[in-house]
Nucleic acid binder design. Structure first.
Length: 668
RNA sequence: GCCUCCUUAGCUCAGUUGGUAGAGCGUUUCACUCGUAAUGAAAAGGUCGCCAGUUCGAUUCUGGCAGGGGGCUCCA
């Protein structure tokens, strides 16, 4: 007679025989691939214990997908070691939308290898191998992994697994050491095994054929530049082929929106080789977008009480010694220009020492000099200085990327000097200002990130950091937006809130940052005279809304897929006559629009009418105005919108008004 | 910076097992005068990224450099 135990199964109390496994419990429920036991993800093969709370996990749930992806990584590693017996295993965790596995191999993988591996994986999947968990002692694990030097290294790190990061944790876990065997269904032989925390799917068959190996790359062992680089293979896997297709379509959509591609197609900007990596030039059409973005930003900053300043692109190095940037970020700065040194032409003796000038990597120290330029009164605070400041950063060659990571960029940078008492209100209104303005540019789905002190990289007292961090946290929470912590993500001088925006296809971009800084005012000895006559140190708020104008434009291009709202579109209206006979009529309409300040062009070329429509469509023109005999007689035009819809016979005066209104109201 | 792949006309891409190259789009010209995503014809346009080496001969092979893609690390 078997002993019975009581469990909570998906919220209901049930009696089962002692030793019942999840697989037996969910025998009739084919969708269940793994289970939560008291909130911990477990293999279905694990026997259940009395009093625990068991919940079903299906393959299409978030946890189920993680397990599917991790199990597929194992299948891939098995295939790799069949194809390349020399391959030593690194780690192989699940990631967003897929998985990867690192290998130490003599020769990097080729695209042909990936194809061969996919075939081998499908074979393994169809063999329906069993994933079997086995608890081992450290010695047993060492024996099993004798040929896997990286796994042995992980075993010696077991105790520090938590510190070594998520990847390591997935491999070895905390507490007991487990190995997962891939077992042949017929013979019961162990075909392959890996040191792994699990859990896994019960068998490989559940993986089906909705997977693909996507790319190869190099990655440092344990993520450290100091370690050897391993070869990484990325893959993706989904519960069904349709899910895989949908994912691939999402990638294709992202590729269609790529700002680098659209930037060339729409003639917005380029990166001439002659200038150097990461140094863009804006063509006339990109220039209009950029100017419109900047003009509107200036207008709003004026309204919000900012004052405009201008500072030079280069400076003597001493400025960045005061600020501390040369201590912390020298590697990220262009090397200095050494000038004004004089030597004796004969003896080469140094007659006059030179000076080191640097391209500026940031504007704040210069703004501080303006603040310090004369005595300041509490009556002037908050003092808000704004500048479209061009800065230059020596980004490593491998990280430069389109407009989103450049070496020369324009920050919409402002520094607000205020008292401690004003700090919280000022932060609150700044955050509101930032969010409102982002909305005007068409981004309206946000969350916030709070970056806190990096214990390795900071200046200033713990008290100041704590106060700054708490204030920022309060302001962020009061905004009502979702707040995600970013431990150790702060700059050396103070904590920050960053605004993350989701674009039209759901990707998130870090946009604006608001940083609180008690340290630079100290280093620059900034002071104001308070009402009681004492000298006080102001608090400094750094904030950038676009981050960089270049990057923000890149994000907007991707967000709008190049189809900018009328107020930002380089060409807002194209007039197309149905036939040459109506050229004059269309020209008159376009002239009226231009008088009203609309960027309008008449297409009077020799192309045929349908071709002109096609061209305007490809150029993503917001409003196409068409006119032929009927329209001319009626003193009207026909609207053709970007989506192909149409509004015919609109009187010219009304059409002009409609366009002006749409631009003025920044309609989408 | 590291690993890996790539660079042929303004753009997208063929091609040459080493004998200096081709298409489509775009551009120019001519003809057509046309109501909603490509009218036809002709022409122009290339030091095959740059510099070396091997070779009788290099766009092709080798090396270096530059620029780019995908990752890693980094991102004040």
């Amino acid at each position: 007679m078997l002993e019975e135990i009581t469990l909570s199964v998906d919220g209901k109390q049930r009696e089962v025989n002692a030793g019942t496994t999840g697989a037996e419990l969910y025998f009739d429920d084919r969708e269940v691939v793994v289970m939560h036991v008291d909130g911990v993800l477990r293999d279905l093969a694990r026997p259940l214990e009395a009093g625990t709370e068991v919940k079903r996990v299906t393959i299409d749930s978030p946890a189920g997908l993680e397990v599917l992806r991790h199990s597929t990584a194992h299948v891939m590693a098995q295939a790799v070691q069949q194809l390349r017996p020399d391959a030593k295993l690194g780690i192989g965790p699940y990631i967003t939308d897929g998985f990867y596995f690192d290998f130490d191999v003599e020769e990097p993988f080729t695209p042909e290898d990936l194809k061969a591996l996919e075939k081998m994986m499908l074979k393994i999947v169809n063999q329906n191998q069993k994933f079997a968990r086995r608890v081992v002692t450290e010695d047993e694990a060492r024996t099993a992994m004798a040929n896997e030097p990286y796994k042995l290294e992980l075993l010696s790190k077991t105790n520090e697994a938590d510190e070594a990061g998520e990847g390591v944790n997935v491999e070895v876990g905390a507490g007991e050491i487990t190995i997962y065997d891939n077992v042949d269904r017929k013979s019961g032989d162990v075909i392959w095994c890996d040191l792994c925390r699990g859990p896994h799917l019960p068998n490989t068959k559940l993986i089906s054929n909705a997977f693909a190996l996507t790319r190869t790359a190099a990655a440092y062992w344990l993520g450290s530049e100091k370690n050897k680089q391993l070869q990484r293979i990325y893959g993706t896997v989904w519960p069904t082929k349709a899910d895989l297709k949908a994912y691939q379509e999402r990638l294709a959509e992202a590729e269609r929106r790529d700002h680098r591609k659209l930037g060339a197609e729409l003639d917005l900007f380029s990166f001439p080789d002659e200038l150097g990596s990461g140094l863009p030039v804006f063509h006339p059409k990109g220039g209009i977008i950029r100017k419109t973005m900047e003009d509107y930003s200036r207008q709003r900053h004026t309204e919000a009480g900012y004052e405009f300043v201008y500072t030079p692109h280069i400076t003597k190095g001493h400025l960045y010694e005061i600020s501390g940037h040369l201590d912390w970020y020298k590697d990220g700065m262009f090397p200095p220009m050494h000038i004004d040194e004089t030597r004796d032409p004969e003896t080469n003796e140094l007659l006059k020492p030179g000076q080191d000038y640097y391209l500026k990597p940031m504007n704040c120290p210069m703004h501080n000099l303006i603040f310090r330029g004369r005595g300041r009164s509490y009556r002037e605070l908050p003092l808000r200085m704004f500048e479209f400041g061009q800065v230059y950063r020596y980004e490593k060659s491998g990280v430069v990327h389109g407009l989103t990571r450049v070496r020369g960029m324009t920050q919409d940078d402002a520094h607000i000097y205020c008292t401690r008492e004003q700090m919280k209100d000022e932060l609150t209104s700044t955050l509101k200002f930032v969010l409102d303005l982002l909305k005007d540019y068409g981004l309206d789905d946000f969350y916030l990130e709070l970056s806190t002190k990096d214990p390795e990289k900071f200046v200033g007292s713990d008290d100041a950091w704590e106060e700054a961090t708490n204030t920022l946290a309060e302001v962020a929470e009061a905004s009502g937006l979702e707040l995600v912590p970013d431990p150790e993500g702060a700059a050396f001088y103070g904590p920050k809130i960053s605004v993350q925006a989701r674009d039209a296809i759901g990707r998130t971009w870090q946009m604006s940052t608001i940083q609180l800084d008690f340290n630079l005012p100290e280093r620059f000895e900034l002071e104001y005279q308070a009402a009681d006559g004492t000298r006080q140190r102001p608090v400094m708020i750094h904030r950038a809304l676009f981050g960089s104008v270049e990057r923000f434009m890149g994000v907007l291009i991707e967000h709008y897929a190049g189809a900018f709202p009328a107020w930002l579109a380089p060409v807002q209206v194209v007039g197309i006559p149905v036939a040459e006979a109506f050229n004059d009529y269309v020209s008159e309409v376009i002239a009226k629009l231009r008088e009203a300040g609309i960027r309008a062009e008449a297409d009077l070329g020799t192309e045929r009418f349908p071709k002109k429509i096609r061209n305007a469509s490809k150029d993503k023109i917001p409003f196409v105005l068409i006119a032929g005999g009927e329209d001319a007689e009626a003193g009207a035009v026909s609207f053709r919108f970007r989506d192909g819809s149409q509004d015919n016979g609109i009187p010219v005066g009304e059409a002009v008004e409609r366009i002006i209104t749409a631009v003025k109201n920044r309609e989408a």
